[in-house]
Design a protein around this nucleic acid. Structure first.
Length: 399
RNA sequence: GGUGAGUUAGUCAAGUGGCCAAAGACGGCAGACUGUAAAUCUGCUCCCUCCGGGUUCGAAGGUUCGAAUCCUUCACUCACCA
């Protein structure tokens, strides 16, 4: 039992620091039912969770299955600083209201995956607000600049001659301090969080909490482009509240290489099964597209259900294999004689009339499934289906 | 506080008085080929009903027939010195 638990816990991890401690905690739970705490922090900066987050959430769920109580830390205080990771620009400061609204949306979505009864939701403003200037100073004396600059991101920016704000130095300290307050046994995060996670461990020692958190790091999930990490701001994400057909379609649009990565990090299939599929694809007995379709189905099924997953596939095949129209399209009404480019913009499938004009020149625009080439076309009264490229559709009622 | 360098489109980056709506690269979009994959080839990539016009090169002023380019002030960034 314990062995299986530990295997599940370590599956797919990038790195574990102090795995002995995790083993002890799990063992103790199975001995006498003592639970332990697992901290994971979320910045309430964007409202929607995407698959990148679920990598962590699924791992937290595994801990919950084996005696872990999740401390879901909403970094409402630290959100006002903004974690520097990978960004050189200062983030915009969020208002309290936005933060709280985002936090609420987060929670609604998180409990799609996590067990509510085994989760404590905590806000770090509770203790960080109270910390005050004195407490903050006390915190800063425990670390020094040279070590701070060891953080990969800081080092790169410093060497690259980019700006680093003092407040950014505070971010890891504050995040680490959260672990002091929460007395976490384990903290999990992405590999890009290594520095911050270790800071928690360090500060727990420094403040003599009596334990040092073990740290478990998950790999960072690449976004749809396969290069950069999945994030909302790069618009390369699959959100867990997106419509089934969008989740399905976006999954199919990833590259074959990336597909395997998604399988490893997101699928519930065993690593063995994944490896054998890989072999079959390699020797040509299995078409990669089928493998990808299965992944897409699995993902839709996870956030919705089997039925909707099958529907999403049917819809997709219908539109892209048989060149039929999607069942739900944006519909707008326009005045009689509207210029085609204007209609495309109004329908939201072109950003500007200039762009629309260019696309028409390039044979990318269809009206009622017929390519058009006249960029000066005006639409007389009637119903039209407008299409740009392969994926953008709109229904327009003129007159 | 001092000295020097810098701020150009989504990003990086060329451009030092007119030939600049601004090279190039990346990214993005579209077309061909496909499996809405990859690779490859082609076109497009500030806005405007566009053979024409408008607004851009950190911000505001100024010089000039003419400014991304020269001058002044301001803001921001980096380096060195203190």
């Amino acid at each position: 039992m314990i062995k299986t638990a530990l295997e599940e816990i370590s599956r797919g991890t990038a790195e574990i620091i102090d795995d002995k401690r995790i083993e002890k905690l799990v063992t103790k739970y199975y001995d006498d039912g003592t639970t332990y705490t697992v901290k994971a922090g979320f910045d309430p900066t964007g409202a929607d969770l995407h698959l990148g987050h679920t990598v962590l959430l699924q791992k937290l769920k595994v801990f919950q299955n084996h005696g872990g109580i999740v401390q879901l830390l909403i970094g409402d205080f630290t959100a006002t600083i903004g974690d520097p990771t990978g960004k050189s620009e200062t983030r915009k400061v969020l208002t309290r209201d936005t933060i709280m609204a985002n936090a609420q949306t987060y929670q609604d979505q998180v409990f799609n995956i996590l067990d509510r009864d085994k989760t404590e939701v905590v806000f770090n403003s509770h203790w960080l607000d109270a910390l005050g200037a004195g407490g903050m100073l006390g915190l800063t004396t425990r670390f020094n600049v040279a070590r701070m600059l060891e953080r990969d991101d800081f080092e790169k920016r410093y060497k690259g001659g980019e700006s680093i704000s003092i407040s950014e130095f505070l971010y890891p300290l504050l995040q680490g301090y959260d672990s002091v307050e929460l007395k976490s046994d384990i903290e999990i995060g992405g590999t890009d969080q290594k520095f911050n996670l270790l800071m928690g461990r360090y500060l727990q020692r420094s403040y003599e909490v009596g334990k040092e958190q073990a740290v478990l790091m998950m790999p960072i999930l690449e976004g749809l482009d396969g290069v950069q990490k999945m994030s909302k701001s790069l618009n390369n994400y699959i959100g867990i509240v997106e419509k089934p057909k969008d989740i399905y379609a976006k999954t199919l649009s990833i590259s074959d290489d990336l597909m395997w990565r998604y399988y490893e990090l997101l699928s519930e299939k065993s690593l063995l099964d994944i490896a054998s599929m890989r072999d079959e694809v390699k020797n040509g007995t299995l078409h990669p597209k089928v493998v990808k379709e299965n992944l897409a189905l699995e993902l839709v099924k996870r956030f919705y259900n089997q039925e909707l997953a099958i529907q999403a596939k049917a819809e997709f095949d219908n539109v892209f294999k048989s060149n039929k129209l999607p069942t739900d399209m944006k519909e707008i009404e326009c005045e009689d004689g509207i210029w085609i480019c204007k209609a495309l913009v109004d329908a939201g499938i072109e950003p500007s009339t200039s762009q629309a004009r260019r696309d028409i020149k390039q044979n990318a625009v269809s009206v009622n499934q017929e390519k058009i080439s006249d960029e000066k076309l005006n639409l007389s009264a009637g119903d039209y289906i407008l299409q740009v490229g392969k994926r953008k559709f709109a229904k327009v009622k003129v007159g």
